[in-house]
Design a protein around this nucleic acid. Structure first.
Lengths: 107, 107
DNA sequence: TTTTAATATCGAACCAAGTTCTATATCTTT
DNA sequence: AAAGATATAGAACTTGGTTCGATATTAAAA
């Protein structure tokens, strides 16, 4: 698969554990801890209807299957792709994960 | 991190690609394809307020940091843990991913 | 000590995402 | 010809997620 992304995740996890240890030991404060986590997070951007459809077709799945992965109804996926409903919050997070890591990342 | 889970994901991805190839070649139908995908998906169960708080504390992050990972407001996390709002759909999917693979899975 | 900042609870109000339903249409499969 | 998968369309409903202000505790910095 994508070794780079997997490596990055593992590295972040390892660093996070180290940082957590430093936090437990009182070396750093909670403020530093939060700022670190913010820097680690992959940015979550907006998706246009076309981008959502293109993303789904890139993964070669039907709206129904895509909906199963996202844990939403098939109608919701249809409405996203037609611009009737605009995904936000947790939904955008999932879409971002799929875009950056593929469907397998949320399987 | 967790080699077993990583392996499972990679294996599923590989099998999925194989299945996709079979589908493209006309060996299998869409129905079989969907049933396969359903079998691959990790089950998404409900979370009680206590379970959400325990999960967050297991990951050793504040409500604010946890909210950043989930791409929701910090108030939402607080409301989940107090039982005022019950996460559903995409949110439950993210919580399930965190429970099974850790916060790094959605970073 | 004082004060600043982070953390978390509480209650209220608003908006829109997500759900559900029915109907229609196309295409493939049996 | 029939059955099923896929996708669009529109409508009504429910509730999750957001935002705001206020309060309280704790830890860090002045």
């Amino acid at each position: 698969m994508d070794k780079v992304k997997t490596y990055k995740s593992d590295a972040f996890a390892a660093i996070h554990e180290t940082m957590s240890g430093m936090y437990d030991a009182g070396v750093i404060g909670k403020k530093t801890m939060r700022q670190f986590d913010e820097a680690c997070l992959t940015p979550v951007q907006a998706f246009s209807p076309t981008e959502i459809k293109a993303l789904r077709e890139r993964e070669e799945v039907s709206q129904t299957v895509f909906a199963l992965y996202m844990n939403v109804s098939k109608d919701s996926v249809s409405q996203w792709e037609r611009g009737i409903k605009k995904p936000a919050g947790p939904t955008l997070k999932l879409l971002s994960l799929v875009k950056q890591k593929g469907l397998a990342a949320i399987s």
